[in-house]
Design a protein around this nucleic acid. Structure first.
Lengths: 211, 211, 211, 211
DNA sequence: CATGAATGAGCCTTCATTCAT
DNA sequence: CATGAATGAAGGCTCATTCAT
């Protein structure tokens, strides 16, 4: 009896997870295409093939959708850092490759749910300044990225670099990456060769191998 | 008679200029506080102490307000590049100083009309993907910044750097600067010392003096 | 199960039909009283006892309301022509009677939804010159009337009348009828006796029995 | 001295007349092109090459413009009836010719100030039901037309036709003419040959020569 | 759990009219 | 007489959210 109940409960929870994901997929797609303010709840509902009302059973409101999207993205991030830290790929190659991935989707007007559309990201950051719900999600994402970046810098730098300097470089690297994302939003067809060349110039510095 | 007419015309033109500026001031303030979609035309009108209808005598619509704001900012940019190119200040100091200026306003919840609020900038970039009017304004701004940055890099690098490498570095520098702006939006109280330290690490590379 | 679903679907469709009709009724009433531009959507919504937003679930915009009104009227037209063609009533009597019906409502400041208020019709025709949605509706109405009139003239004329002459007479008859409607808008209390007398004078010509 | 004053007064009155006419010309043009509600006072002012405010020195409001247009038209009418009554032209030819005149302007998207655009006329009639100012002007126009039509019918009919019958025929003729105008609004490119043929069929009846 | 009809506040924009100059 | 900047009410329409079914 207990088992049956638990099974029922599990099944229910599983179903909820599936529904939430379906909604987030639709939301991310719509937000990417039309922007946070441009995409309506009904449009998202339609994309998710459900009624508008049902969304509110799983999310408290529109902002929560962003929250959900950012949180989900947060988890995907682990993979990227794993690869970076594994050293299997040169960091420059890693960044260029990642950039190419995001941009290609953007360019083909397809949307990859694995990456946050550059424009959407900007909107989210902007919105996070005014919406505490979104701010919370972004805070978490920020923390993870900082942690991951810090970790990698620590391992890839020589051991005589002071922790503060490490932090400083993390800050710069972070800014560089964010700025690249912003550029992606402005002109999606950036010359990848140029990007690689530029990165190769600065990376030694960031790893302290140029001093 | 002619003189009187011309005076009248001048006075009219002057008044128009004043009104336009008053509106743009109000708009920039409102957009910074509530976002492009969050600030309503009547709110802007109220801030500018005029009727909503009057705004439309000077601007064709809401997007044109952004256009106006960006264009105004575009002009202020010249000063920044002048200072950068004059070499009177080390670029790292210039950037840190500029950053401090923007951030301080941001932090005090005041708004400086001399600087584009970081959050607003993100929104503008995001919106520019969908709104041709805003896109045009941003295109112009982009061009100016790229030109300015290119110029400075060319003059501050050794002469044996290939044009393509110069371009690559401009790209990276641009991204770095953009990313810093983005960071400003995320966490306004950044440690300026850390920022300086980080910049000092990478700038030699960007100027080709680290190879 | 299937049956239940179908019932649900039917009920929904039925409700939609009812709502659409309720809106059209309200719109026709408001347009008749205040004109197309004088009647606001909220006024119509209030008359229909619903919120303004709901109207847009059933009609894409204000013009579509006119479209709906005209289409509805279009269907009622069939009855009129049936009676005309049945020959149960002399055409002159039919026209006078129809005129009396419309005018009486008009005169009592009541509005009959079964007849298009003369003033409203004029507005619709005028608006159809500028609004494609309305133009389409009027085009359909025109076609039906022309067809009906043509049919009746063909059957009530002697067989030796050329098709072109038939067309010419249809044109004149149509103009006469339209003009009567226009007169109705100008001075609603027209002497019906006079009208009958006048019609009796010209009808023989239109049927070719006066040559 | 008196003379000078009077001259001044005359000149002033003359100037006023010119200004009024200039405004009415612009208004008629704008109304014809965009409709009563679609043409704004500023648009009319611009067309008349003056400031919006100045219009209000000569006309109390938008409705008065219609009033002025209709009144002016009223005077032009005399010529038409004069020609009709002179008998220099067969009435059928006269009507067809008049129709052609109006339609040709309509069709070429030019606007003749000598004729009321068909669409505008419909709007005016519709508006006259709600606006007393316009109603008054239309009342006058109606009266003149009725008088003119009555006069002509009386002179062109045989003397044994009763006055009531004359009235009845005037009513029908009026409706026919109005309806033709309405048709002009609906489909501007009407076959003139067809029109003439149709008119030739009914005119004998209207003149009582077919009974 | 799911639906989707319904709400109603609020948005951007227009425009007839006024009035200080 | 003339200007045109300024007003402010109103209009059409959208959409996040709720709730009866």
């Amino acid at each position: 009896m207990r088992k049956a109940l638990q099974q029922g409960s599990n099944a229910r929870a599983e179903r909820a997870r599936v529904q939430r994901d379906r909604i987030l997929d639709a939301a991310q797609r719509c937000f990417s295409e039309r922007g946070f303010h441009g995409a309506s709840m009904s449009m998202i509902a339609e994309t998710a093939q459900m009624s508008p009302g049902l969304i509110y059973r799983y999310f408290a409101g529109k902002s929560e959708l962003i929250h959900g999207i950012v949180s989900r993205q947060s988890e995907l991030l682990a993979d990227d850092f794993e690869q970076l830290e594994s050293g299997a790929q040169h960091p420059v190659d890693g960044i260029v490759e990642k950039y190419r991935e995001c941009a290609s989707y953007n360019h083909d007007n397809q949307i990859s749910l694995r990456h946050l559309d550059a424009t959407l990201l900007l909107e989210i950051v902007a919105e996070s300044r005014r919406d505490p719900v979104i701010a919370e999600a972004m805070g978490l994402l920020d923390q993870r990225i900082n942690h991951g970046l810090g970790q990698w810098l620590a391992q890839s730098s020589t051991s005589d670099v002071s922790p503060q300097r490490l932090q400083a470089r993390a800050l710069i690297l972070r800014a560089l990456l964010d700025g690249l994302k912003m550029r992606q939003a402005r002109d999606p067809d950036l010359d990848l060769g140029l990007l690689r060349e530029g990165l190769q110039d600065v990376f030694p510095c960031l790893q302290g191998k140029a001093a």
